[in-house]
Design a protein around this nucleic acid. Structure first.
Lengths: 346, 346
DNA sequence: AGCATGAATGACAGCGCTGTCATGCGTCAA
DNA sequence: TTGACGCATGACAGCGCTGTCATTCATGCT
């Protein structure tokens, strides 16, 4: 087997010099034609392009990285790939990458600050074109590394704390606060909060919920959370717990849409009329929310755009311009009131 | 700004030789201690490990790749990151990578065979540790490239056609066929098929549906599909279309769970009793299916395991062993009958 | 005409690491 | 005791590309 592989390994590898030979220029000119085409005469470029096409030349990124000390890779550091929110963000990132020669290197911290720090250290040591990290809650050492980084650093997901370099996201605090204020404005008397996977963003949503409630003069603290990862069935269970503990609950602000859908199903099972008897508000506004029956209210966030903008910020910096250090782009949120919080005539 | 970056770039970069100096061995010994620790004496290894830790040395993968002609990267070629199914698979892949020094390079074909071919060409030119590609429908040129590849190649998602090298997946044909047979066995008379984003896997599910129906003596071909990407709201719309066109429909086999959830919501809107009046069967068995009210029948597939196994196959090959060329791992599927296909006493 | 200027191109060296072969040394069987 | 062998280590060269400076040549100006 080893032998077979060896043989197959020996398929012709076209190098830049061979292209140069075929195009009758020096290797360095080919290199330039690839990186700064405008620094090479049109004729030379044409010959080089032809040679590249005919020989099927593909550049060797390792050699480029070694020689230039930079890579065309954006490091992305997120807690987990399972989380739906990050899946959307990743999609935005890949969309933002299109048309560039940039690649992505993804690392997951599994919500461990130490893993995150280590990951950042390794990524930075490879001199990436940029770094995209989730959140603002890095360890002090990780923050120090990021501050000293030689590449643009974009913190995604939230805005609020001053960014290390750049940031794009939204205020989860205010999003959740808008949600609970909507519930109260609709006339619900005893809203509760349901949360899973209580990462820093979730904590800030919870804070927004609490402050919104306190501002309305509510005294108790109707909150059910769990560190478990979020899911629809978890929404069912948490809602059941909530009702057992606090039967007077007449509305729930869910930390995300999964949970909200779970609450909807559980309410249906118990013949609770959603909207009239029970207000449900989700977070993120997954496409499914408007399709549900009844349609579910949610705080819409633009995860796709978050990823895209983060990449754009890096790309703008690479092309010389870009936002100055300290710039934070607030993507905002939009409350989408739907039938699930239409209390109607009671 | 350029100047600032320049300055920051000059942070100390520890090289292997510096570690060697500190550990009082030659660079090559450090290299060996990193790659084949058992080829270095315990004392030398201890000194080297200490030096690495004290200096904070991080290997330069570009230099390694250039010198050795291999990379520690598995290329992954999938149609799209948006598709939920691939998100699950990616999660499995990342899980499978844990504990190895392997990385992932992800490329998306956006369902274009030409893009796929180009992507495969570029990935292969970087001599990856392995390649994971979705499906069996590559262009002839792409197949030729993959056949000649010097690294393990795993085709994921489906089994059936003989693999180029290795494969892991399931038979979408038989999964869908099991679904429609279940519907018929439950006593539904006029099942229909709803499909979105009709990729090759979806086509095979459709074929399974059709054959299952024909075997039961059904004459018409009740199929509603669209090339649009799948979503819950699309499920609502397709189901509405279906009812308009073929009112006698009493069951739907959905190409995936999103659509099935959409059908559920639309049925609720129309006061159609799901289960008794309308059978619904999804595909993949997303966690949400069992939590829904009523719980939705689905054909369970293990996307997570698919990703994990694909990586395992590559890793096994790298460590010398592994399955022989031509091996296909059938992960199978499991029909999960639930309330949504309990026709009960009509 | 003579010179400065800038565009196009090239020579050279080296990025950090590893494959290949060679070396030194201790151990074992004959 | 001697040669053969295996183990731990090292020397050397080079992977494919680009940064830096140097060179050439045509252009526009005084």
């Amino acid at each position: 087997m080893g032998v077979i592989f060896q043989i197959m390994n020996d398929k012709p590898r076209i190098t830049l010099s061979e292209v140069a030979l075929a195009a009758d220029v020096s290797p360095i000119t080919v290199s330039r034609a690839l990186r700064n085409p405008d620094k090479v005469s049109a004729e030379a470029r044409a010959r080089i392009d032809r040679a590249i096409r005919e020989l099927g030349y593909v550049p060797n990124p390792a050699a480029r990285a070694l020689a230039s000390g930079r890579t065309d890779v954006i490091g992305v550091v997120i807690p987990s790939v399972s989380n739906n929110v990050f899946a959307d963000v990743m999609r935005g990132i890949y969309e933002g990458l299109e048309g560039s020669s940039l690649g992505v290197q993804l690392g997951t911290t599994r919500y461990s600050p130490m893993t995150e720090e280590q990951l950042i250290r390794v990524f930075l040591s490879q001199r990436p074109a940029g770094l995209i990290v989730a959140g603002h809650d890095q360890s002090p050492a990780a923050r120090a590394l990021l501050s000293a980084a030689a590449c643009p650093v974009v913190q995604i997901m939230e805005v609020g704390p001053p960014p290390i370099d750049l940031a794009v996201g939204l205020s989860h605090y205010h999003g959740a606060r808008a949600g609970v204020e909507h519930l109260l404005a609709q006339g619900y008397r005893a809203p509760a909060f349901l949360g899973a996977q209580m990462d820093p963003r979730s904590q800030r949503r919870l804070a927004g919920f609490r402050d919104g409630l306190a501002a309305a003069g509510q005294a108790d603290d109707p909150v059910v959370t769990t560190p478990e990862p979020s899911s629809v069935s978890l929404g069912c269970r948490l809602f059941a717990d909530l009702l057992a503990r606090r039967p007077q609950t007449d509305a729930v602000l869910c930390n995300n849409d999964d949970l909200a859908i779970g609450v909807l199903f559980e309410a249906q099972r118990r013949n609770i009329r959603v909207g009239a008897e029970l207000g449900i508000c989700g977070f993120n506004d997954h496409e499914m929310m408007s399709a549900a029956e009844p349609a579910l209210t949610s705080v819409a966030t633009d995860r796709l755009s978050m990823g895209r903008q983060a990449v754009r910020m890096v790309r703008d910096r690479l092309t010389g311009g870009g936002a100055p250090r300290g710039h934070a782009l607030d993507l905002g949120f939009r409350l989408m009131p739907r039938a699930s919080t239409a209390r109607g005539r009671v």
